[in-house]
């Protein structure tokens, strides 16, 4: 078992806290969604995990061993990020060769398939790539290098709809072929909602949710009906958001419902991750308490 742990990691720049006491455990062969609005601290956290920047406090471990300045652990991760760390003047094929040399392996079969599917010219120079092809090239590296933790920060940046579809297909295909841990960091929740098995929501540097998607969805309840009846029914529950349409009200509850009787005129159903995310990260006034 390979387990990636983040223990009490905090990071501040001057007096500004960017990451505040984050604790996480990434288990083997799961697909995690790290969700957060822009500026929530996702990239900073991922940079700390891969030892690109130092935390102000706390540590990151793989199999109980600190990853800081540790080749054998750092070599188990690949972080594809928005920032470009490859030399602009290098040819794509050369970058592949150099990465293969250092990581000690590369899945050429999969790479060739992806190169053909995405129609990317490997003779180009890295600095000349469009945003979309820049992402595609880095995704190829992410899926083809022999790592146990594939960490993708905003993976579909600049990709058109067709290429996004293709990417998710390739991701799941490669996952089925060679199960390993994926961490997808994104603000495009709808696209990954069914792909991820566990969801982590980061808001203002804090983890506000960390659970299997299924458990989370089972706790979402939209309560729709006459305003007064809905308010009566949801009294005391963790209401995270609401919609009004005339006299009809929808209250969105996150958490378990107790045995209270549901009036015939009030309808109950679940709501989706995207909606929950918006409610939780907008700091809806109705609730400061989020169940974990």
């Amino acid at each position: 078992m390979s387990m990636l742990e983040v223990n009490h990691v905090s990071k501040s720049y001057g007096s500004k806290s960017v990451i505040a006491d984050v604790n996480l455990a990434f288990e083997e062969n799961k697909i995690y969604g790290l969700l957060g609005r822009n500026g929530a601290g996702k990239s900073t956290l991922l940079n700390i995990i891969t030892d690109r920047i130092f935390p102000s406090s706390g540590e990151v471990k793989i199999d109980s061993e600190n990853v800081a300045d540790n080749d054998s652990k750092l070599g188990l991760m690949y972080l594809m990020s928005e920032v470009d760390l490859y030399p602009n003047g290098a040819k794509l094929s050369q970058i592949v060769k150099d990465s293969e040399l250092i990581y000690g392996g590369f899945n050429h079969k999969l790479a060739d398939k992806m190169i053909a599917e995405f129609k990317i010219d490997m003779g180009q120079k890295f600095g000349k790539l469009s945003t979309g092809y820049n992402s595609i090239f880095k995704l190829i590296l992410a899926l083809c290098l022999p790592v146990k933790f594939v960490i993708l920060d905003e993976p579909v940046l600049g990709l058109d709809a067709n290429h996004r579809e293709l990417f998710y297909t390739e991701l799941l295909d490669s996952y089925a072929d060679n199960p390993r841990t994926f961490i997808l960091s994104t603000h495009l929740i709808e696209e990954v909602a069914n792909i991820i098995s566990d969801v982590i929501i980061l808001d203002q540097g804090r983890i506000i949710l960390n659970q299997p998607v299924e458990d989370v969805l089972a706790k979402t309840h939209s309560v729709v009906g006459q305003k007064n009846e809905v308010e009566e029914y949801t009294k005391g529950l963790n209401v995270v958001g609401h919609d009004d349409m005339g006299n009809i009200r929808a209250n969105y509850v996150y958490g378990d419902l107790d045995d209270r009787r549901l009036p015939d005129t009030v309808q109950l159903s679940n709501f989706d991750l995207q909606k929950l995310f918006v409610f939780l990260t907008n700091q809806y006034e109705g609730s400061k308490r989020h169940e974990n």
Binding site: T50, D69, D71, L74, Y86, P87, S99, I102
Partner: peptide, 16 residues
Amino acid sequence: YENFKFLIQNGVSRST
């Protein structure tokens, strides 16, 4: 710094 960027992307430690 150029080399550092490439090497840290590829999981190489500072001491190496």
